[in-house]
């Protein structure tokens, strides 16, 4: 994997988690700006999915297996979009909390992806 992208995704996911967590703390639902933030993170995750699949097609071999790698790629691509839809229909602080939790999950997935790909030098 491109390490920089994985790191960028992990960091932006945590930022999104903090931002939406703050909104939940202030008893606010997710606003337009939050959705733009979600879109940015989701877009990065989609790019990662595409690059990951292209690298696999090019003969790359993740250390812990192709199946697990693809499963985590798909999971990380869908985590934030699904949470975004859930917060669209939950216009309270709990919608914000949901997005925040999903973003933390995404950050964890990125750490695992890094391991699965084989640590450094991918």
């Amino acid at each position: 994997m491109i390490d920089a992208l994985t790191v960028a995704l992990g960091v932006t996911a945590l930022l999104l988690a903090a931002w939406c967590g703050f909104a939940a703390y202030r008893d606010q639902p997710t606003k337009d700006w939050h959705f733009i933030g979600m879109a940015v993170v989701a877009l990065l995750a989609m790019v990662q999915l595409v690059i990951g699949v292209v690298r696999l097609a090019g003969g790359a071999d993740p250390r812990q297996g192709v199946a697990i790698f693809v499963a985590y790629l798909i999971g990380s691509a869908f985590a934030v979009p699904i949470a975004a839809f859930m917060s669209l229909t939950e216009r309270t602080r709990w919608g914000s909390a949901t997005v925040s939790a999903a973003a933390v999950v995404l950050a964890v997935l990125e750490v695992r992806l890094y391991d699965i790909w084989g640590g450094v030098g991918g």
Binding site: A71, G75, A79, I82, A83, M86, S87, E90, T92, W94, G95, A97, T98, A101, A102, V105
Partner: peptide, 20 residues
Amino acid sequence: QGPGRLLVMLYGVFTVAAAS
């Protein structure tokens, strides 16, 4: 709904994680 929405999300994540 409400706090339940957060629970749905977390249970969903764990369903996918444990099942896959």
